[in-house]
Design a binder for these strands. Structure first.
Length: 316
DNA sequence: AAGCGGAGCAACCGCATACGA
DNA sequence: GTCGTATGCGGTTGCTCCGCT
């Protein structure tokens, strides 16, 4: 593919409008040029988006409507966030993927500024790489448990640590940590009631505990809406949808919430009980150590030796 | 310095669904 | 109800970059 010279492409899409696109005998493909980008931006600024086939034609772009749409949505749109996936976003992706699977666009809706394509790429390149390093399939129960019991708690710890390091002086970051905990842990209150305590005292069996004396969902939301916050860290608290409060068993996807398994956080509360269900955590720990040795990307190094030690204690 | 291989990412493809005539 | 068209989504491809040998 990637015929940058723009070969005719009558078979580019089985469902794309024949009348519109086949008339464009000179369709370009491959990477977009700066000139094409400007054309598209200009046209959309004047006429708005939508009706992509006619847009492509009227804007003088020798591209398919689909190509224009994709370019706009994934790259040119002014609110697209570029750059590294933050810890908060990683956590969100892991959590949301555990709920919805490869529903990338749905996941992207909860990560403002991120596109489904970007999240999909992140998953395929980073998460699947880790699965490979752990020598298990990304869809396997073992790998999902690894995410649930090791990565996610570790991410929460690191988010809190980062917030504590930078925010003793700013309420914003504190609210972030609180809000992250609130959103990610609050569905534990379904059937447990012991994780989210009044006035933001939050803890779990992984040693992740945090006291946020003034936290409420309301002020978290307020803090999250500040501009500086939005540009520096992922606006987790903008995820105002209350799906975290939905009892996990209501999830329509049986693949992710099997009987007795619950959501990840439900099991996080009482890992010891769950650890007795035949999981090969020794093998996971071995592979995880190997992963830590091999990975040079600090953003991926979610586990410390203490984590491994703790994991071993849980298994005893 | 050159070759090679893997990672990351932009773009394409095919299918599904929505919508209007 | 059917057909044609438009849009959206998830999977896949292949290019570029970068690190390693």
């Amino acid at each position: 593919m990637m015929d940058v010279e723009g070969n005719s492409n009558s078979n580019s899409s089985s469902s794309t409008t024949q009348s519109d696109e086949e008339m464009l005998v000179d369709l370009r493909r491959g990477p977009w040029t700066v000139e094409e980008d400007f054309k598209l931006i200009d046209y959309i600024a004047t006429h708005g988006e939508g009706r992509w086939n006619s847009l492509a034609r009227c804007a003088g772009l020798k591209r398919t409507g689909k190509s224009c749409r994709l370019r706009w949505l994934n790259y040119l749109r002014p609110d697209v966030r570029r750059g590294n996936i933050t810890l908060e976003e990683q956590l969100m992706i892991l959590e949301l993927h555990s709920r919805w699977g490869n529903r990338w666009s749905k996941i992207a809706q909860h990560l403002p500024g991120r596109t489904d394509n970007e999240i999909k790429n992140y998953w395929r390149t980073r998460v699947q790489k880790h699965a490979k390093q752990l020598k298990c399939d990304v869809n396997s129960k073992q790998f999902k448990d690894t995410m649930r019991y090791l990565w996610m708690p570790r991410l929460i710890e690191r988010i809190q640590a980062a917030a504590a390091a930078t925010s003793s002086s700013t309420a914003t970051s504190a609210s972030l940590a609180a809000s992250t905990n609130h959103h990610l842990i609050n569905n534990n209150d379904v059937g447990t009631g012991n994780l989210v305590m009044p006035h933001g005292v939050i803890g779990n069996d992984f040693g992740v505990s945090h006291v946020t004396p003034s936290y409420t969902p309301e002020n978290s939301s307020t803090a999250a809406s500040s501009d500086s916050f939005a540009t520096q860290v992922s606006p987790v608290s903008d995820l105002t949808t209350d799906y975290y409060h939905i009892p996990v068993n209501h999830n329509p996807n049986p693949d992710y919430f099997q009987t007795g398994q619950g959501g990840y956080s439900e099991s996080m509360i009482s890992p010891a009980g769950y650890f007795n269900q035949g999981l090969d955590f020794q093998a996971m720990e071995h592979n995880s150590n190997q992963w830590l040795m091999e990975s040079g990307d600090t953003s991926d190094n979610l586990w410390s030796p203490e984590d491994i030690w703790f994991l071993q204690q849980q298994m005893m």
